[in-house]
Every structure is written in structure tokens, then in C-alpha cells.
Design a protein around this nucleic acid. Structure first.
Lengths: 153, 153
DNA sequence: GCCTTTTTTTGAATGACTCAAATGAAAGTT
DNA sequence: AACTTTCATTTGAGTCATTCAAAAAAAGGC
């Protein structure tokens, strides 16, 4: 009997966590929303389990992140996002305008993929690289909103 | 008559901002506390100007950052820090335990010092690199707190 | 199926930060 | 130097993401 390790139940078992409906639902939600906030996850989970509270989503995310099943991203002053993609060393592209997040593969390698010239005595664990920019849809919204294309030439 | 451009007054004038006591005091505070939170800046400013409110410190930091005299750093779930060092492309070393911040010079060059393989259509403005680790004092505190040095020889 | 441990719920609290109206100070104008 | 306009500061309340805590409910070993 093969165990489907991509199944939420098995992921939880494997991590030594109790299998509960809210936890499975949060994991499933993250499969469809790869960089979702607690709020967005809550909304998604509510589609199938309408009684799960936002507090529970926070609890679940804390537990999942604590045992390494998920990872939290905290970009600038945007609310925290969560992702299932863990273990590989990848980075993020964040839109300065709408906060949309996209994964970018690490050019260098595994963590810490970069090291400073002088570590000032710190014991380094990770190098986090965040690329800031304007996503495609914000580019067009900004363009139409203010200037209807400069007419140089 | 040489203008001392490192003087807070001249910095403000040069940026087209009105020169006020709170603004000068915030800039001076940041000279002594190169990665201070709004709270820490407020405490420092209060030593000379006890009536300046925390709200004013937030206002001043918003204005200074808005015109490029300061820059804000928002590491993970720590409160925002502010720094006077702007213009050069440097990065930060943040202690995962106490939140202490140290500057590290950029190994690569000016912004965006790195570029992803695939920019997903984003118009990139900056690559922010944050090194996470344990600072020296947290290392010793952690050591003394739990295990008094493993005696493996 | 029972019992202990862990989760979930509910409701309140926190911390960092922002908003808004009223007062006060800067600096250009005469 | 006084006037005036514009911008800054104060005060007090509000917001948002997140956490705390106590009580009720469910999970999984026996």
C-alpha cells in the first residue's frame, strides 16, 4: 500500500501532528492559493468548513510553520503570507503596489545562498532575497490611471 | 561660506522640508542610533525635547522617508527601523532572537544588485537582501541559558 | 468506548501604526 | 516687523493583523 505523501492527512501524520479537518483544509487551501494571507486562507477554508474561525487558521498556520510544513513570508508592511513550498531555497518577487507575490528560483543554490563579506560575528541561518517591483497588472493600471502613454517620437 | 551639508538643518533645507526642532532632533537621534525604531527615536528625542509626541516622530519619519533622507527597514515581524544611510545599496544582518540590525555592504553593486532568472513581467526596482542569524550576545545568552557548553573533546 | 492530551472556539487584548480636527509654528509677502 | 498662508505638531481616537486565555470539543492511545 503506497502512502500518498502529498495527501494532507499524511503530511500531518508525518509531522507528528493530529489530523483535524481545519488543518487538512488549510493545507488544501494553500495548494490553490500558494501565497495566501491568513485571511484569504480563512475565506477559502470557509467554503467547505464555514465554522472554522480565523483564530483557528492562525493556530493551524502557527503549528504547520512550527513543524516545517509551511513557511511564512512577511513582506514589508503587508500582512504575512504562507506557502507550502518549503525546503528548497527560493525567493520572492513582491509587487510594491498590490502585494502580489511570485516565486523566483534561487540563482545561487541552497540556504544561505549568499554570505556577506563580514558577518559581524552572527551565526547565519538564512539569506532572504526579496525582489520589489511592479507586477504586470499594476503596470497597466498605473499607465491608464495617470498618463495615457507619453507621446514622444 | 561653506554649508555643512551633514548638518540636519541643511539636510532638511536641501530636501525642501521646513526646518523644525522635532525634525532636527529625529535626524540627530538617528546619527546615534543607526537602526532605531520609532519608539527608540522618540525616547532619544525626548531627552532634549520632552514634549515631542510619538505621533510627531511617526510624521517626521514619514516625511523624511518620503523625500529620501531616511529609509525604513521592515524585518519580518519586528517593528520598522529607520536609517540615515541611503543611496548606497547595502543590506542587513538581522538577529532572529533580539532583532538587532547590522549593515552589510552589498557584495554585488548598486540596486537592483541581483536580478532573478525570470522576472515574471515585473518592473524591478530593488533587490532586498536580509541575512538572518544569531548575533554574538544572543549566542552567548542561548549557550548559558540551556546547555553550559557541551563537553565533547 | 473511555480518558488524557491537544484543538478549537469565543471573546478580549495587544502593539504598531494611521486618521482627523484643532492648535501652533515657519517662512514668504508687503 | 507684522501679516498671511502654508505646513507641522498635538491630542485623542481608530484600525488592522495578530496574540492571549479560558472553556468546550474533538483526536487518538488504551
Amino acid at each position: 500500500m503506497l502512502m500518498n505523501l502529498s495527501d494532507a492527512t499524511d503530511l500531518l501524520r508525518g509531522a507528528g501532528l493530529r489530523v483535524t479537518e481545519p488543518r487538512r483544509a488549510v493545507i488544501e487551501a494553500l495548494r490553490g492559493l500558494p501565497h495566501a494571507s491568513a485571511d484569504a486562507i480563512h475565506a477559502k477554508v470557509a467554503q467547505t468548513l464555514p465554522d472554522v474561525s480565523l483564530q483557528t487558521v492562525y493556530n493551524v498556520l502557527r503549528d504547520l510553520t512550527g513543524c516545517g510544513l509551511t513557511r511564512s513570508i512577511e513582506p514589508g508592511d503587508h500582512p504575512a503570507r504562507y506557502e507550502l513550498r518549503v525546503g528548497d531555497n527560493h525567493h520572492h518577487l513582491v509587487c510594491t503596489r498590490c502585494g502580489a507575490i511570485t516565486d523566483v528560483d534561487c540563482v545561487i543554490g541552497h540556504a544561505p545562498c549568499l554570505t556577506p563579506n563580514d558577518d559581524h560575528g552572527f551565526v547565519l541561518s538564512e539569506a532572504e532575497v526579496t525582489f520589489w517591483g511592479l507586477c504586470t497588472s499594476c503596470q497597466s493600471e498605473v499607465a491608464t490611471a495617470s498618463d495615457p502613454v507619453p507621446v514622444t517620437t
